[in-house]
Amino acid sequence: MSYAIIGFGKIGQALARAFARSGIEVSVATTREPESFASAAAAIGPTIIPKKLAEAVKADVVFLAVRFESHQDVAKALSTWQGKTIVDVTNAYGVPPEELGGQASSRVVAQAFTGARLVKGFNHLAAAVLDQDPAVHGGRRVVFLASDDDGAAAEIGALAENLGFSPIKLGGLSEGGLLVQARGNSWGQLIFKDLVKFD
């Protein structure tokens, strides 16, 4: 299984650090040339591989850690996303609900990535919190996942556990997805809730 993070801002770098802590290799890419962020990637660790966008999107699992407004630019990198899993880490805060056609923002993202299985996840924590070791006081930090594809949710749930998090599945995008999304000037009820699960 190969992994990529598209977007290397605060959230993208926090995700990269989670992969580095677990020793899991991940490609990182932006719309810029890889040389422009190679030193930042190297500072995180040797398993963080800077690539061109066209190369990074060949991964099996692609974390979308860009601004919501940029998701369509990333979607154009491939003609079909068949067989891939997209983890939607975007937040559509400030995007009017009418621009989303009254849908959950993840549904709009899913429509752009033709053929992909989409999981909404890892977006409810602020970058500074996501950046921290998920092992907290003997428990594990929670990440919420929502998807209309149970298989994809299970796959990303297993990855979340490998990264040290405790995944909690919220159901489909139209129900659970609404709990962890932003749109207009409102945040979903679970956004910014920093929870820890004790086994």
Rank of each mutant, 00 (worst) to 15 (best):
124 H>I: 13
139 G>K: 05
138 G>L: 05
110 A>R: 11
132 Q>R: 11
131 D>N: 01
131 D>T: 00
116 A>G: 04
108 V>E: 10
117 R>T: 01
120 K>N: 04
133 D>C: 12
130 L>N: 00
123 N>K: 12
134 P>T: 02
143 V>Y: 02
109 V>T: 12
139 G>E: 11
107 R>S: 06
143 V>F: 06
121 G>T: 15
112 A>Q: 13
116 A>D: 10
115 G>L: 08
129 V>A: 12
137 H>Q: 12
132 Q>G: 01
134 P>K: 00
107 R>Q: 14
138 G>H: 10
140 R>I: 06
139 G>M: 13
136 V>G: 03
115 G>H: 08
113 F>W: 01
111 Q>W: 00
145 L>S: 00
120 K>G: 10
113 F>K: 01
126 A>F: 14
135 A>P: 00
132 Q>N: 00
132 Q>E: 06
140 R>S: 15
144 F>T: 04
128 A>P: 03
129 V>N: 02
110 A>W: 10
129 V>E: 14
136 V>A: 07
134 P>L: 08
116 A>W: 08
122 F>I: 02
123 N>T: 04
141 R>D: 09
127 A>D: 12
139 G>N: 08
144 F>R: 07
132 Q>I: 02
127 A>F: 15
125 L>T: 11
125 L>Q: 07
122 F>D: 01
129 V>M: 05
118 L>T: 12
133 D>W: 05
116 A>E: 05
139 G>F: 15
137 H>K: 14
133 D>T: 07
117 R>D: 06
134 P>Q: 06
128 A>K: 08
109 V>K: 09
141 R>F: 03
139 G>V: 15
136 V>K: 04
115 G>V: 06
126 A>V: 04
111 Q>V: 13
135 A>M: 13
112 A>M: 03
115 G>C: 14
126 A>G: 08
130 L>C: 06
115 G>M: 09
115 G>Q: 04
134 P>D: 09
139 G>P: 15
135 A>V: 15
121 G>H: 03
115 G>F: 06
124 H>K: 08
141 R>I: 11
111 Q>M: 14
133 D>N: 13
125 L>K: 05
118 L>W: 04
114 T>V: 15
112 A>F: 14
114 T>C: 07
143 V>M: 11
143 V>Q: 10
128 A>G: 07
126 A>E: 02
109 V>E: 13
128 A>V: 15
131 D>V: 03
132 Q>F: 00
133 D>R: 05
138 G>R: 03
117 R>S: 15
141 R>M: 03
112 A>I: 11
138 G>P: 00
125 L>R: 03
109 V>P: 12
144 F>K: 05
124 H>T: 13
